[in-house]
Design a protein around this nucleic acid. Sequence first.
RNA 1: CGGGCUGUGGCGCAGCUUGGUUAGCGCGUCGGUCUGGGGGACCGAAGGUCGGAGGUUCAAAUCCUCUCAGCCCGACCA
Length: 572
Amino acid sequence: MRWSNLFIPTLREAPAEADAVNHQLLLRGGFIRQLQSGHYSMLPLGWRVHEKVGEVIRQEMNAVGGQEFLLPAMHQASLWQQSGRWESMGEEMFRLTDRKGADLALGMTHEEVFATLSLELASYRDLPQIWYQIQWKFRDEPRPKAGLLRVREFAMKDSYSFDIDDKGLDASFDLHHGAYQVIFSRLDLDAIPVQASSGAMGGSASVEFMVASPAGEDDVVQCDGCDYAANLERATASLAPVQDQSGSDAPESIPTPGIRTIKALVDAGHPPEHQIKTLVYRVDGSLVLILLRGDHAFLEQKFLDATGAIDLEPAEADEIRALLGASPGSLGAVGVSGLTIYADPGLEGRVGMTTGANEDDLHLTGVDVARDIAVDQWLDMREITEGESCSSCDGTLTIMRCIETGHIFKLGRKYSEAMGVSVLDAEGETRVPTMGSYGIGVGRAMAAIVETHHDDAGMIWPMCVAPFEIVLTVVKVDHEGSMALAEAAYESLLAAGIDVLLDDRDVRPGVKFADSELIGIPLRVTIGPRGIDNGVLELTIRATSEQEDLPVDDLVERLVELVHEGRSALSL
RNA sequence: CGGGCUGUGGCGCAGCUUGGUUAGCGCGUCGGUCUGGGGGACCGAAGGUCGGAGGUUCAAAUCCUCUCAGCCCGACCA
């Protein structure tokens, strides 16, 4: 295509509301425009990339036997009521009412609809199935942010597997795991698979594909000694042993006037690892105590995953006072009965501990956890920290900020059961298929590529998703020799199936160079009088800034070769 | 939802504290001349309900109240 005819509204400066790199560059390059918070228009360049990312995903899904569908984006309430998610999805689901007063939702995912289609599966002979689509999802995010990374309306490739048994599900899961690695490799995203929490979706064996980037929203824990990698939300570490302080026959109260924090208690001579932190939470309506070592942070997601609780919020100060008789900062579990007490294993067997006495300005020392506290349930619910030791080798754990570009998990029979799906097995018995669910956000993948592929001049697209593969930059458009040569090369490249952009704009060369770098076209050929006189044209590789002189005669041949190489590149 | 911040031509900003007559600057845009291998120069021009509503005042971009929108940090997710 000819640049002079295209709508590529580049900006020299990024709009003030853009903070994330992907947001700034996609705006400046004329790839996207924001309509409102969390809703973006794809401009021609952005859409070309989006389509190409989708195509890579499509090819690899097809390669593992996936079949492409396209399901409605709008669903009747009853569908979601049947799975119970009309309630459980809460405010994140966009809801609307039609003229008849019927409740509807905009789909945020498609388990229910695919499961409905799977009602037509009748026999184990029909299984396994892998069904997918690339469809728009709507989520009323509390806070859209970071350009295309977190939006309210986005295209997702979501696939669903249906298998007769767990073994089959394992196989479908592994097929996706493999396909995802190939997809991200082709997109030149260094996505590492990590153990994850399955969150609100339910299910087991949840793996996220994480790309390191400061723009991300997840923390990933990695071991430097083995291949352990997990989302911080479920990461574990082996705890360094602590030498207990000497025990005593019974807890002893000590006056602690004005002390309300772990830190203040530390300053008063009680090291945090010898303290018990007591938190009061409201869990699905009832109040519970949560105990951790003084220097450990409570990780809500771990608690939710372990208990299956839906609702978790810190209790209010006045209900805490009514419950325990003291304000936050002076709480403890010694002698408390009648409410559920959860404790982190970091406290197991510890003696000589300090904790609140449930009376303001008073703490207890010499607490023996086993003797003095009636723990109902031990739960790993602490957030691990950088530098702790790996629990499966003696390596050290590091924490890395990441973008979640993909998530795969085993759903089990939750949805197939709810929607009444069943098939007959070889013995003629009724069986409920087991499902898996697998997602990749297309726009988010684009954003992740920009976050990891850019320099001061702009974006650097991998060949397979670049909006154009080659740009022919005509330095002087009123120089006849230049234009004639450029036109000829352009036609030949088009004929060879190359996505070529002819920059025929009558603007200064500096503008053209800067724009071509901003929009990140992998290969640029500079066509001007100087080169033509010498019989060579200058090729510039966007990613490396390397330059190469190409003889005019085999220009097209060489370019086609380079593009083909680039298209098939894997970053493995 | 809690905390912090911002709304002034397409983009980036100044002006606001201490109200005052034609609301400025840079970039971009349009016309022209000269230019032409890294965002060039000069001449001329277009383009703004100062987010919105209400109020105070002789007078409001500026002060007050309400409201809407956007961004960032936290609780949630591809």
